[in-house]
Simulated scan of single mutants.
Amino acid sequence: MVKIAVAGGSGNIAQEVIDAILATKKHQILILSRKDAVDGVSPGTTWIKVNYEDPDQLTEALQGVDTVLSFIVAHSDPGSVAQKKLIDASVKAGVRRFAPSEWASSTFEHMPFYAGKADVREYLEKLNKDKKVLEYSLFQPGLLINYLTYPYKSTNHIKPIATPFDFENRRALILEGSETSRITLTTAQDLANVVARAVDYEGEWPLVGGVKGGEVTLGGLIAIGEQIRGGPFKVERLNADDLKAGVIKASWKPPVVHPAFTPEQADTFASTITSGLLLGFAVEALNVSDEWNELLPDYKFTGIEEFLGEAWRNKP
């Protein structure tokens, strides 16, 4: 049994991971948060309110911790200050393993909303430049396929998020000419189970930790949607120059509805996120490698058609 600290542990993905680790009945979990304890957090955890501006208090909170899993939301951490201080405190406290707040893409091309993740990658790389100070892995599942069940929930904790692939209304937005670009889709449940197994993994964590549920082209994903939803999708193909300018020339735009965003931020970021995702999809930023699949060969991932077929069964 080891002690695991989860920073930003009240978040949606974090709670899925916490539940998976608790299900093993092996480890102690500390939830680190800048907030007071909230209702609805998984039982069997210890909540610690931390101040990321107080290195000594943060280091004290991490005493005896083996692994730190960070889910600090990038836009709530300007300059990645909190996450960098968490890394420093982890080193001072003698933490063995660290997972930065990745949980998405392999690269961040065209996606400025992920800039903080790139900053933390660079910080960790410099930390281990001369010798390994902290073992870490970049957990990358691509796009969580659970978002494609919007507006219906398909996990215990993750709230649905609209994407350019709108299965409910049988429509999609893509960059023109990107139908053959590939994307990785992984269920949140599989990601959480992999992290729970990674905590127990006896070997060294891979620096790049791809978690690959399934891979499909954008055109193939639309075809799957048409088959599952029983009719053609209205596909709008957008111009790259417009998207780079943050202009969405389409009949609709995915709304940004997420607990990490205020309504004002959601409205501001809607075009930025949509254009960034479409451009990112086109360059396969959301197509990831499969390091954890290789290290955990006995784990069976849920297939794309299997998951979406079941999720949309009997839906209007």
Rank of each mutant, 00 (worst) to 15 (best):
M1Y: 03
V6S: 06
V6K: 10
S10V: 02
Q15T: 15
I21R: 09
H27V: 03
Q28K: 10
Q28G: 13
L30N: 10
R34N: 15
K35M: 03
D36T: 07
D39K: 15
P43C: 04
T45D: 13
T46P: 01
V50F: 13
Q57F: 00
Q63K: 15
Q63E: 13
V65G: 08
V65S: 06
T67V: 13
V73Y: 13
S76G: 01
S76D: 12
S76R: 13
D77M: 05
S80D: 10
V81A: 12
V81M: 09
A82I: 00
Q83E: 15
K84D: 01
K85V: 00
A89H: 06
S90H: 03
R96Q: 15
R97S: 05
A99E: 05
P100K: 03
A104P: 04
H110N: 15
F113C: 03
F113W: 10
D119T: 14
K129L: 15
K129V: 08
K131E: 14
V133H: 00
L134I: 03
S137M: 04
L138N: 11
L143G: 00
L144E: 00
N146G: 11
H157I: 01
K159D: 12
P160R: 03
A162V: 00
T163S: 13
F165H: 02
F167Q: 02
R170K: 15
A172Q: 07
L173N: 07
L173V: 09
L175P: 06
R182N: 12
A188V: 14
Q189Y: 10
Q189A: 13
L191C: 13
V199T: 06
D200I: 00
Y201L: 11
G203C: 09
G209A: 04
G210S: 11
G210D: 12
G214L: 10
V216C: 03
I222W: 09
I228R: 09
K234E: 14
D241E: 15
G246S: 07
V247A: 06
V256F: 01
F261L: 15
E264C: 01
E264G: 02
E264I: 05
Q265R: 09
A266E: 10
D267P: 00
S271A: 15
S271R: 12
S275I: 02
L277T: 10
L279I: 11
A282Q: 10
A282N: 11
V283I: 14
A285Q: 14
D290F: 05
W292Q: 11
E294F: 02
D298L: 08
F301H: 04
G303H: 11
G303W: 02
F307S: 04
L308Q: 06
P316M: 04
